[in-house]
Amino acid sequence: MGQRCSWVQATKCQLLVTSLFGMLLGLSVAILTTITYYEKHFIVISEVLLETNPMRTFLNLVLYAGICLSSLLTIAAILSVIGTWRDLESAMAVGFLCFAVVFCASVQAAYWAITNGTEAEDTMMDVYDLVYEDVRNNSSNNRRQELLNIHETFLCCGKKLQFEEERNIENETCQSEITGTANEDCLQAIHNILKKHMRFVSIVMIITTIIMVYGMILTSFLCFSIHFNNSLDRKDKYVLTG
């Protein structure tokens, strides 16, 4: 019996530490979501005036998903702490459920990254190509200003094409200091920015998956342990009736 109690106490300590990491992870997800939503490279693409700008829809989806994921991580951590501190089976069960939901969301996000990992990059490139072609076809000054804003934000200059007509467009929409220092075109710059950003997202998702699996193991063990103890307590109580 004493050995079993020591196992339970050790599991509780591990769950408290896991819950602390869960709270920090929820804060990290919230910060990463905020950075993504207000990142200047994404904003300049989402602000391009289109009938339906897919980048704006993508950013809104990221914001809602990030808020939900961060909230679930925080709730799971808080419930786990409460369940551990007060031996509440219901709190432990709900904490397990939150860990499981976040785990499923992490797996789904990883699957999306593997199968559709270039969707955001393709969307940004499509928007840039549309603006570039509109300027090439002598579009309005608004389009020209949008292209100039993209070049200034990404520190790039047009596309590496061999036609003089396109080179004239770049001369008109690139600042002289950018033209002299940029070694890559805007499509390559978009690729590099997304690659760097997705590296951080992948790291956070991997850590989230590991912590969620560990949290589910600990909460399920403690949930059954609390239930077993409650059952023993009820068996030890006798009521005498006359």
Rank of each mutant, 00 (worst) to 15 (best):
Q175F: 08
V8L: 04
F200D: 07
S46Q: 06
E133Q: 15
T18F: 04
L69G: 08
F228K: 13
H191M: 07
M212I: 01
P54I: 07
I67E: 04
F221E: 06
T52K: 14
S202E: 09
E165V: 05
T173Q: 06
L222H: 03
E170K: 08
A110L: 11
V201Q: 06
V101L: 15
N192Y: 08
N141D: 14
I35K: 05
L24I: 09
C223W: 10
T11H: 06
M198V: 04
L50S: 02
G215E: 03
K12N: 10
L49Q: 10
V127D: 04
N138A: 11
D129H: 14
F96Q: 00
T209I: 02
R4H: 12
T52P: 00
V48I: 10
I207R: 00
L61A: 14
T84I: 04
L79M: 05
V101Y: 07
V213F: 09
I206H: 01
R56I: 02
V17F: 15
S231D: 09
F96A: 05
I217Y: 08
I75Y: 00
R4Y: 13
R136K: 14
E152Q: 15
L72T: 03
T84E: 03
Q145T: 13
L130P: 02
V201F: 08
K160N: 15
N53R: 01
Y128Q: 10
H227P: 04
Q3C: 13
C157L: 09
R234T: 09
V213K: 01
Y128G: 06
H197K: 11
A93C: 09
V102T: 12
M216R: 04
L161Q: 12
L148W: 09
L232Y: 05
Y111T: 11
D129M: 14
I35D: 06
F42T: 02
V102Y: 02
M198C: 03
